[in-house]
Design a protein around this nucleic acid. Sequence first.
DNA 1: AACCAATTTTTTGGATCCAATAATTCCGGA
DNA 2: TCCGGAATTATTGGATCCAAAAAATTGGTT
Lengths: 225, 225
Amino acid sequence: MASENRSVVTQLRKMISEGAYHQGERIGEVRVAEDLGVSRTPVRLAFRTLEQEGLLERTGKRGFVVREFSERDVQVAVEVRGVLEGLAARRLAEAGLTDPVREQLERYLAEGDRLFSKGYLEDADITDWSRLNGDFHRTIIEATGTRVIADAIRRNDHLPFASAESIIIDKRCLDGEYRKLFMAHQQHWLVFQALREGEGARAEMLMREHAYIGLRYGSLFGLTD
Amino acid sequence: MASENRSVVTQLRKMISEGAYHQGERIGEVRVAEDLGVSRTPVRLAFRTLEQEGLLERTGKRGFVVREFSERDVQVAVEVRGVLEGLAARRLAEAGLTDPVREQLERYLAEGDRLFSKGYLEDADITDWSRLNGDFHRTIIEATGTRVIADAIRRNDHLPFASAESIIIDKRCLDGEYRKLFMAHQQHWLVFQALREGEGARAEMLMREHAYIGLRYGSLFGLTD
DNA sequence: AACCAATTTTTTGGATCCAATAATTCCGGA
DNA sequence: TCCGGAATTATTGGATCCAAAAAATTGGTT
């Protein structure tokens, strides 16, 4: 009924990452169309998008199958993000921080300081931190002045981080989570210092290391959409 | 008439990179459909694919525009490829070369040695080298045992390298081209040695440097499709 | 002449129909 | 029982139709 194509993509992505269609399963247009209550057309469009994202792949035969991701794939996806964000950080450090960007980052860091000042995090704080974290990374990536890196990161995020995300949901409230997030925050400070001082190689290295926190913490960006 | 969707994507990609629709231009389904002599349906599908590839982008309003790429975008795209292939090389070096992979790479290198042994390259040699070069890189990337990196590279290749490609077409026969390709070949040797010796950091660094040759040489992979 | 509103035109999104083709089933013969 | 080919079925790709929404144009008012 009322379903714009974008929402079909989103729904389908969600259903796949939630396991409604399990990995390796062949997936047909008609069935999905019926499941979502739309005609085949938006599903066909969505399949193309999801194929490019890497969530679906064409079979040698006909139609698509849900792509299978291994633990190693997730590990590699985290490293991919690391090298890409590292590249962004290095370029930004070498180009130099403009005043608006520097001030923006400083605001985020100050907010983070405030969040962690209590020595513990409530649920609302974790939400705040999640947003703050995403803003910090986004700001750096966008400040590089090209969308090429941001696109590369975005295109790589979908499924592997969806599964990483589901891990963190369970572990969020466990002991030690505070320490982990606080460490991420401290790393942000280090990255910022390197950016401010124009230390490109160091900024890159710090950012690459920082990515590994995502392995347990979940998406550094948060899943968009 | 006889146009499978895949071919619409290919045609459209080609037309865009050749400037049939210039950058920043709004592009409508009907017009493209007429230009290609097909109905709107395959064009709509193709638009989604090209959108994900980054060749088209949605306007705030309606429809798509041909994405604009700057010189800097191409530069960054080359660096993106560098860090991704560097990651692949490091992982492979750390995991260790299996005998089949090592032998495969040695065959490519030996073929390269033969190509360059004359001290100059004919047109046919350049074709051979192009294939050889692609095979060498592909082998390394595929040997990492995950498709995540290969996908990230493939998704990033389309337009920026198309324009880089057009540069090399013109310069191929100029003086100094031989030296450049020979240097690329020598770099392959260095990368191979690092891989064989398990020197991950060195393999990564060499691969990252190696990517810069692509700036003038054109796509290291060759444009697929 | 400029600005705002209403109407017309254009364009996209979704549904459906038809054709082509891949996959499967079924049947007969060895 | 097993194999091969023909008929059947299922599924995808392309074209067309309709509705919705946005853009452009027209006209009226200040």
